[in-house]
Write a protein that binds this DNA or RNA. Structure first.
Length: 273
DNA sequence: CTTTCGTCCTGACTGC
DNA sequence: TGCAGTCAGGACGAAA
């Protein structure tokens, strides 16, 4: 589920829930997710007042009083659900948080590739999960020239370069495939061969795909703020992802599926060069 | 330095 | 119906 648009959607749902609220109760069901959870996490969260939640790359960050920040990464299978009252415990629920409104949010993650951490403000720049992150794709920093510059000399395929969170932070497998399709660029092309013109087109495609995905996530969010409902999922008209052998939406050529650096890539061999 | 590969987990699905 | 094998939207850290 969680690439940038999905994380953004989850953050958007969490923000009004937690902003200005005090954490009243925390249930922690295990001591580790991907990595060991912070010592005494539940104790340390209880009684803390939440600030304005925000997103960085695929991380959700909730500032707390006392100069600390709650960091949440959903991994591959993580989800956050919101409840009006204390929910029944469900399998794979790992951390449940009750606010002073009586509402709850629950972090659930079957594969446990996700992570939750409590860090100090001063660690925002230096934390091992945050310090190497590249730029936000929806920020003004991303431009065709900037991207072409960062890709210059790279022999890795453009698909892999766009998956690299140290360059652009927040893209994942689906949206990289979709953006490359929209830009007419083959995932197999060497990253270093993307010069100004193509880079400009690619940047526009990345922005368009993400913006559209966030918008549709936002639209469907309404149905999912109901108690017990799940928030944050992707509703996206996918052009290529998961569509191997199906005809290209543009030229009807059968789409191809290949593996690059261990991940699936889908593309149109005719439209993408 | 860059790039690939193994790894952490569970669950859904496919094919025999 | 059961069971083995494969694959999954992530990303670190070791190795080449």
């Amino acid at each position: 589920m969680p690439e940038l648009p999905e994380v953004e959607t989850v953050k958007a749902a969490l923000l009004p829930l937690v902003e200005g609220r005090t954490i009243q109760h925390v249930r922690q069901m295990r001591s580790d997710l991907r990595w060991p959870l912070p010592e005494r996490l539940a104790d340390r969260l209880t009684g803390r007042r939440c600030g304005t939640a925000y997103r960085r790359a695929k991380y959700i960050l909730i500032p707390l009083d006392g100069h600390e920040v709650l960091l949440i990464h959903l991994g591959m299978s993580g989800a956050i659900r919101i409840y009006e009252h204390q929910p029944e415990f469900a399998k794979h629920d790992h951390i449940s948080v009750q606010l002073d409104t009586g509402q709850w949010f629950v972090f659930s993650d079957p594969r446990r590739f996700g992570h939750v951490d409590l860090i100090s403000d001063s660690e925002l720049e230096t934390h091992k999960l945050l310090r190497h992150l590249g730029i936000e794709p929806l920020s003004n920093m991303l431009s065709g020239d900037w991207l072409a510059d960062r890709l210059a000399g790279k022999t890795a395929p453009i698909k892999s370069a766009l998956m690299d969170q140290r360059i652009i932070a927040g893209l994942g497998n689906i949206y990289v495939c979709e953006a490359l399709f929209k830009a007419g660029i083959s995932p197999r092309r060497k990253a270093g061969s993307i010069k100004a013109g193509r880079a400009e087109k690619l940047v526009r495609a990345i922005r368009d795909v993400l913006t559209l995905a966030i918008a549709s996530g936002g639209t469907s969010l309404r149905d999912h703020v109901q108690p017990g409902g799940e928030i944050g999922y992707f509703v996206q008209q996918l052009s290529v992802y998961g569509r191997a052998e199906l005809p290209c939406v543009s030229c009807r050529t059968p789409l191809k599926h290949i593996t690059q650096t261990g991940r699936s890539s889908f593309y149109c061999p005719n439209c993408q060069r």
